[in-house]
Amino acid sequence: MAKRRKQRAGAGSGWRFALRRPARLFMVAAASIAVLAAGYELTTGAGSKIVSDSLSELKGATANLLGLTVQDVTVSGRQYTTAHEILDAIDVGRGDPITKVDPVAARQRVMALDWVRSASVMRLYPDTIHVSIEEHEPLAIWRNGEKTSLIDERGAVVSDLSVRSFPHLPMVVGSGAGEAAEAFLAELERRPAIAERVHASLRIGERRWSLRLDNGVIVHLPEDGIGRALDELVGINETEGLIDRDVAVVDMRLPDRVTVLPGREGQKDGVSKAATDVRGANT
């Protein structure tokens, strides 16, 4: 099963982190904007909307006069979210007054992006907007009825549009599979001899799992004791080559036996429809 790695993608985006104005100018600008903000907060009554609009215009004009305009946008934590998506979300262009960016409103728009789990937006005077994001880490592809989605380790749907970009991820199928996927896939990953043969993991009745292997064999796992059953399947397969034989179903739901249903060729040759207690041959 492919390992999933995180990487910081802020570097290489072409956005620089730079402060190029004198510190004294910064202090003057900060003081001016603080006064304007205080005026806004103190404004009440019927004319507050007009006054607030005027104050916004005044703040923008003051920022331009003092050179407090956006020259750089820096981003940290970006891997799957595109630069264009972030720029559209913060709604700022080079040369805009830095006071135009409302960090709270901009953060809410960034948080609405598919891949973003958490975010912060800061104005770094005199000329930089910094966006820090934490993204969802893709865990699996979840198929539920006619809908196919990309989910993270918490079972949350990340996107319905990015599935084709992650063909290496395991697939889980059925109602409730998304929420239960993390723990189950961790069990599979600890047994690579089986995990690498799994085409899809099927959630049955929101209480147990079955495996569809790459050769079409179905393995029914018990509701409890999944780890034990997977270890036993590994052992039987190592000694008997079970999952590569002409079998259709390996049923491990009962604690005291493994039931095997033969494949098409076995049924044609008159083999019993069910050969039970394969476990006994391995003990």
Score class of each variant (00 low, 15 high):
residue 57 E to M: 07
residue 30 A to V: 10
residue 198 V to C: 05
residue 17 F to S: 15
residue 105 A to F: 11
residue 280 G to D: 13
residue 161 L to N: 11
residue 271 V to E: 05
residue 250 V to Q: 04
residue 35 V to G: 08
residue 250 V to F: 06
residue 58 L to I: 10
residue 78 R to Q: 12
residue 23 A to R: 13
residue 89 A to G: 02
residue 88 D to T: 12
residue 140 A to P: 00
residue 212 R to D: 10
residue 229 A to F: 03
residue 119 A to F: 07
residue 94 R to Q: 12
residue 268 K to Y: 05
residue 180 A to E: 07
residue 120 S to C: 02
residue 38 A to D: 13
residue 166 F to T: 07
residue 11 A to H: 11
residue 199 H to P: 05
residue 233 L to V: 04
residue 154 R to V: 01
residue 255 P to W: 09
residue 173 V to I: 07
residue 25 L to G: 04
residue 283 T to I: 11
residue 208 R to N: 10
residue 191 R to T: 03
residue 189 E to A: 12
residue 99 T to Q: 05
residue 84 H to V: 15
residue 55 L to Y: 03
residue 213 L to D: 02
residue 67 G to I: 02
residue 115 W to K: 02
residue 88 D to L: 09
residue 29 A to L: 12
residue 162 S to D: 15
residue 26 F to C: 13
residue 98 I to N: 00
residue 62 T to S: 07
residue 188 L to W: 00
residue 256 D to H: 14
residue 218 I to D: 05
residue 91 D to T: 05
residue 190 R to M: 12
residue 38 A to P: 05
residue 234 V to F: 05
residue 230 L to D: 06
residue 178 G to R: 09
residue 91 D to K: 07
residue 82 T to P: 09
residue 42 L to H: 09
residue 107 R to L: 05
residue 84 H to I: 14
residue 78 R to N: 14
residue 88 D to M: 08
residue 159 S to Q: 03
residue 40 Y to W: 15
residue 101 V to Y: 00
residue 27 M to S: 15
residue 188 L to V: 03
residue 257 R to S: 14
residue 45 G to F: 04
residue 110 V to Q: 02
residue 113 L to Q: 05
residue 137 E to S: 14
residue 135 E to A: 09
residue 259 T to W: 14
residue 8 R to N: 15
residue 253 R to W: 10
residue 275 A to I: 15
residue 71 Q to E: 13
residue 125 Y to S: 06
residue 94 R to T: 12
residue 201 S to Y: 01
residue 31 A to D: 14
residue 19 L to R: 14
residue 237 N to C: 03
residue 36 L to W: 04
residue 30 A to E: 15
residue 141 I to P: 01
residue 262 P to Y: 04
residue 16 R to G: 15
residue 134 E to W: 07
residue 97 P to A: 07
residue 221 L to Y: 07
residue 158 V to S: 01
residue 237 N to P: 00
residue 73 V to K: 02
residue 250 V to A: 02
residue 1 M to I: 06
residue 126 P to G: 05
residue 150 L to S: 02
residue 66 L to A: 00
residue 160 D to R: 12
residue 253 R to K: 11
residue 236 I to H: 07
residue 64 N to G: 08
residue 218 I to E: 06
residue 10 G to Y: 06
residue 70 V to Q: 01
residue 156 A to Q: 13
residue 75 V to M: 08
residue 252 M to S: 05
